[in-house]
Simulated scan of single mutants.
Amino acid sequence: MTGPLRIGFIPLVDAAALIVAVDKGFTAVEGLEVELVREVSWSNVRDKLNIGLFDVAHLLAPVAIASSLGLGHVKVPIAAPFNLGINGNAITVSPALHAALMEEIDGDRFDPLATARALARVVAKRRKAGAEPLTFGMTFPFSTHNYQLRFWMAAAGVDPDEDVRLVVLPPPYMVDSLANGHVDAFCVGAPWNSVAVDLGIGHILHFVSDILVHAAEKVLAVRQTWAEKNSETVAALVRAAVKGAAFIEQPENRIEAARILARPERIDVDAEVVQRTLDGRLKISPDGAMRESGRYLLVGREGAGRPDPAQAAWLYAQMVRWGQTALSPEALVTAMGVFRPDLYDAAVGQSAGTADAPGGSFGAFAGPAFDPRDVAGYLASFDVARRAR
């Protein structure tokens, strides 16, 4: 191809491997000229990728699957040769909702089943009092944030379509929406949960790793037809992203990586907030309480960069569970085919079958173990669900 690669991204820390790959010159070493384009909403990123205004995108994993299936928009098959992040989201609640949940909780406040049951009691009290339903912000209908919120609530019998309101907000707008009282809580990626806590307007209730130990979050996405025509470029970009991830995962590089990501043209927040995210050490309450987790965001370690088709299958299963599509063996195959470990392996010189991949171990706090070979059986185990219309 000729000309610079145009790559769209949203200002989130899970774009780190991509941003560092460009700004540290790893893409240049691979012979690539790259223009990173900052966007606000996932619909903008998806649409510009689909019509060719972007060659590559930092994209929500479920959007890549939905695009390939033609759900919610035009059908454009997507290939994801690199996984930009495992985990990285959190659920943040307003001080008022946090107080209400803590008043109702019975058990460990970091146990998602205990908080979900507390939420169910809060919802019931509000209904009895004639109050408006609680409003939760999430980033997109086809998003991990949507599915993670639903998975958490539904484990305690809270129906996310009947008992609360779920609304779509671009990630950078979450904090203002909480401050203005437009939402009572939100699920979003870093750094926006930490920004809300630092402003004194939110409490981080859960890291997503409390809900799912290992959950694919964002992918490096390309149109399938473009990938076929530009295989060498795809391989070079994957290698650069692998180098970016490896740089970030070295503790001695965290300060520099945080400064790169914090720049105004990148994420545009304080570097210290970004570093907290990369270190997995976050302030969770305005009073300064801290919480550490080595699983908050995995950028490169534990094989995080290699796409795992079982993760795509789980995301497809959530689409079916919540009525966004009907279960189809053909669609499941298509969904799993979006995550391309073969392209990753070819780029890094790894033999198929030798990679250190999670193999679908999600570690969900509730429900049965997920088996992509029996999606129907998995879905049948849940009481709260929706049928596609």
Rank of each mutant, 00 (worst) to 15 (best):
Q350G: 07
G359K: 03
R301S: 12
A352M: 10
K75D: 04
L205M: 09
A116F: 10
A376V: 03
D374C: 14
F140I: 00
G189R: 01
L178D: 10
A64C: 09
N87W: 10
D55H: 14
F365Y: 04
A357Q: 08
D345I: 07
D106G: 10
P286N: 07
R117H: 11
Y378T: 00
D342S: 05
M102E: 15
P368V: 01
M174G: 10
L18F: 02
H214S: 11
L18V: 02
S209G: 08
A258I: 08
L220Y: 11
G200A: 11
P286A: 06
A114R: 04
R387W: 08
F186S: 04
E232A: 14
D14A: 10
A114D: 05
A304Q: 05
I248W: 05
P11V: 02
L60D: 09
P191N: 09
S41M: 04
R6Y: 14
V384F: 11
W42Y: 15
G303Y: 12
G303K: 10
I51V: 13
G360Y: 04
I78N: 14
L49Q: 08
S361M: 05
F151R: 13
D23Q: 15
V219S: 03
S143Q: 02
R38Q: 01
E272G: 11
V274R: 00
A100V: 02
R109T: 11
M336R: 07
E39Y: 14
G244H: 04
W192N: 00
R321Y: 13
F26E: 08
P191H: 14
G349K: 07
G85I: 07
L69C: 09
N180Q: 14
V122Q: 03
F26S: 06
D210P: 11
Q250F: 03
A312V: 08
L12T: 01
